[in-house]
Design a protein around this nucleic acid. Structure first.
Lengths: 191, 191
DNA sequence: CCGGAATTATTTGATGCCAAACGAGAGGGC
DNA sequence: GCCCTCTCGTTTGGCATCAAATAATTCCGG
């Protein structure tokens, strides 16, 4: 039966056959796999519904959101809240600045730091856009009750917390002395 | 107190103040936001623990995984299972092929199609790598019981299903006649 | 069989994304 | 003042990513 997507049951069956010999952490595997399926699906829907008319990417929107909620903020803190690296933020902020949605200002006391804030244009955009965005968030979560949404959010938060608290330690243990191979990509040393 | 990450409670407080005037779908918003936080955190941990020693990216691993479980498969189906676009798969497959982990073969009956499969080298890698990967999946899910993992997975699956079943229809309705502005990026017509 | 419609993978262009290197500035000790 | 170190944001390099355009092939009606 070609052309049909495989069902969850079929996949689990195939996995079981393939992994018969392994000690499989089945439930955890299912959770992790579905986090990514869901994240990709939700992101794509929101980009193609609420965001596309304003020519915003997901990440661009998140950065605007952070600035909208928190007001003027230092870049490191925006990157942290938005869940992206500071290097990525530099690029996003440049894009948003070029579209006059975000302003960049030097820190009054520390020449290294930079403050980001929404322009009036950016504020106005968020006031119009947020209700639309939130409506789509509600749409994707339609099959879940409010309580189920909270359960879901709590479970996910626990995973994030686990990694924040123990992730680094764990990675150190796994390396166990050996040093991590450098990423294939990334800036090279001059030497 | 500069330099400290904002707590969930602080964020919710700030959101409430900022959004006092809006009809806010609070639970759904929390769920969607945390899906992305968790997805990014998990992906980063796995890339920097299990995958980095083998110089694999997340997506590269997922593609290998799909081929490992399902065996030889057509590209469209691999892209579907891996949750990426077929254009992206072309690039990933090229990378994996250059590292002799994946082989590409023409479809015996249809010259347009291409079949992907693991090389023996790729099989061997997955046999060694999967247990390590699965152990890290278990690690990130440590705070959750097996049953909670399943609940989480089910909730996420429901969201994915919602979008698969009703996403396209919804986007059509939202547009309501107007045609979607083209993406800023993407190939341009010759005209 | 011929020619247009449909289907398939690839190419293209712009952006996102990370980690590591880098440069500019701050801060402390002497 | 002068280092030396630390801490910022930015740059860099290599992939990943999508959607639309395109090329290659098959399918179908006549």
């Amino acid at each position: 039966m070609p052309g049909r997507r495989r069902s969850i049951a079929e996949t689990e069956q195939a996995v079981q056959e393939r992994l018969g010999g392994f000690e499989l952490q089945r439930e955890q595997m299912a959770a992790v796999a579905n986090i990514h399926r869901a994240a990709a699906a939700v992101r794509q829907h929101l980009e193609n519904s609420a965001l596309r008319p304003h020519d915003l990417t997901w990440t661009g929107f998140v950065v605007l959101w952070v600035l909208w909620i928190w007001g003027e903020a230092e870049t490191w803190s925006v990157a942290e809240e938005a869940g992206i690296s500071k290097g990525t933020l530099t690029g996003i902020a440049r894009t948003l600045e070029s579209r006059h949605l975000v302003a960049r200002a030097p820190h009054p006391e520390d020449g290294r730091r930079v403050l980001l804030s929404l322009t009036p244009e950016g504020e106005e955009l968020m006031e119009r856009l947020f209700p639309v965005f939130n409506a789509e968030e509600a749409f994707v979560a339609t099959p879940l009750s409010a309580e189920e949404c909270l359960r879901l959010a709590n479970g996910l938060r626990a995973i994030v917390a686990q990694l924040e608290e123990h992730g680094e330690e764990r990675r150190r243990q796994l390396l166990d002395g050996r040093d991590l191979a450098p990423r294939r990509s990334g800036r090279r040393s001059r030497r």
